[in-house]
Design a protein around this nucleic acid. Structure first.
Lengths: 148, 148
DNA sequence: TCACGTGGTTGCATTTTAAAACCAGGGTGC
DNA sequence: GCACCCTGGTTTTAAAATGCAACCACGTGA
């Protein structure tokens, strides 16, 4: 695919986000990172991605300051990849992906993994945009204000 | 890229979602659809995507029942693409992409489009996962329960 | 009816991705 | 110290996706 125009001049935040993490592997890497995966080999085994692609994506995510590297916590001289504060704020995005998938891509009764609230042991409630009064906000109730 | 393993056997909803909408254009198409775009030509002009790619993506999104086609509302014999109920439920995902992008991919003061609550004229509040008590839920406070 | 807009499809060049082989350095057993 | 394996990649080469431009069928509008 010739010439991927960088979205760094885009004024739409959705487009810029997709430019950074909107590919096949990056979001799955982030998902695994939330799940505690941190080593190259563990990502590779978990995702089944080609090693060169995985290496390139990890490099991009580090460049984008979504992941950072640090010495492995198990005492070996190897490094591990962990989420930065910016990466951790992708949590709502991963939850949104998960909740939409749960509701629309599985047959009724078909087994799937679930996100659990540790403090209660219950599934995390459905997340949706709200007004400042806490009322549910439908797409029709919003409008994108463009600039200029 | 040889043999993209379909994620239809995946038990992780995040992976299945990404399999359906996790490519460069699909989410931008959905974003435009939320923004009221519905005609092939309008998508093409808005996105700048190649026409064959756009056609293929629209076909996939219709197949996935995220978009549907119907006769154009302007009286012409052409068709338009509109979000289905399932597609509308991608709203939280698009909002999550937007809010993360707004907070992390723009310099302070750099202009960007904003999502406005029509009823108040104010920006839509930040959306994040909550416990059933309405308390903010951090990644550390959750765990993915795997099956089997 | 005749040109033009819409909504595509087709063919070809370019770029990404994938798979597998290779390799360097750290760690381990002896 | 020396063989040998594990980790974390890089390099090659092939396959697939993407982009671009040309083409085309049908509606529409003058």
């Amino acid at each position: 695919m010739p010439s991927r125009k960088s979205a760094s001049t885009e004024t739409c935040p959705v487009a810029r986000s997709i430019d950074v993490i909107g590919d096949r592997w990056s979001l799955l890497i982030v998902r695994d990172a939330f799940d505690g995966v941190s080593r190259f080999g563990d990502f590779q085994r978990s995702l089944g991605a080609a090693r060169n692609i995985l290496a390139e994506r990890l490099r991009r995510l580090v460049e984008a300051e979504i992941l950072t590297t640090r010495p492995a916590s198990d005492g070996t001289a190897y490094q591990e990849y962990v989420l930065t504060a910016r990466g951790e704020r992708l949590f709502p995005l991963v939850v949104a992906l998960r909740q939409w998938g749960e509701q629309h891509l599985f047959e009724r009764g078909e087994p799937h993994s679930t996100l659990i609230d540790r403090s209660t042991g219950q599934p995390v409630p459905f997340m949706a945009p709200k007004t400042s009064d806490g009322e549910p906000l439908e797409p029709d109730g919003t409008v994108v204000k463009k600039l200029q």
